[in-house]
Amino acid sequence: MLRVDGVTKTWKEFKIEKVSFEVKRGEYFIVLGPSGAGKTLLLELIAGIHFPDGGRILMDGRGVTHLPPEKRKLSYIPQEIALFPHMKVYDNIAYGLKTKKIPKEEIKTKVKEIAEILEISHLLHRKPKTLSGGEQQRVAIARALIVEPNLILLDEPFANLDVHVKSKLLREMRVWRKKFNFTALHVTHSFEEALSLGDRVGVMLNGKLVQTGEVKQVFMNPKNEKIARFLGFENIFEGCVRGDRFVVDGISMKITGKPKAKVGVRPDSIVVSTNIPDMDNVFRGRVIAFEDLGALVRLTVKVNNVEFKAFITHTSFLEMEIKEGQEVFIGFKSSSVYCFD
């Protein structure tokens, strides 16, 4: 459906270097990266707002690299949502159909139909600025879907919404996807969005697409330390392999994957307890620091000379009465230890 082939672009302080990937028809593809990685610029290149300095963009095998946006048959939802402020919700949704000179009656039917599915029928006569953030996002999605685009481009669509609205929209997005069977390219920095919506994900760091694959696959098997760090592996160790064990600084942990030079463990895979936990990797250590993150507390536990970061809930933090210098056990499964280069 969409093929991005070695696309390069420098624009203002952003740059993209030789980015290549493919989105198949019907697929939900996530580009995941921290802010400033060049994600928005990538979408703008695909939308035709900017043109690449090098490389090609193809849709259904047809080169669109230098086509203007209106000739690409895609819908773009920028992070700003960008509803037309001088038009009512109805006219916002109908805009794309009006440009195609579709008969008024047909437009009316289609707008009503899509408004019903997206649960915005009661908003059709309102002006955008009177809507809540979640409502605006629904209208933007309706406006994008109604033209039946080959591809829908979403730039951080849920970034400015509060947690409840966001999780509701995430759930509904999956329903709408089944209903409309659209193809999406969605850029975000949110793991939650990637995990709950994405079929495949491309990780973007510093303007490069560093790893592409099925979402779970990428999250479990980051190719290298940089990607692992971005994907939340806060415990990364360099050591040596001895049989099915990985040894670092006198600590020997059991691993299950194919052994490599480095291993990583997510802080949420580590259990902290005052009793010995029943797991295949258990160590005794000392709490040297803790940091309150709201619902979670991040502990730094020192085992010999190795520091582990672990998340525990606020409740168990209070129950265990954790103080600096306290002795605790940490445990994690061998299957939670991931190996990479």
Binding site: R72, S75, P78, T99
Partner: peptide, 21 residues
């Protein structure tokens, strides 16, 4: 906001149409 123009273009409006609407 030039995003408004970009969205209009992506929805199929030409430059002139975007300007006028």
């Amino acid at each position: 906001d030039d995003r408004l123009e970009q969205v209009a273009r992506s929805l199929g409006a030409t430059k002139l149409k975007t300007f006028l609407t």
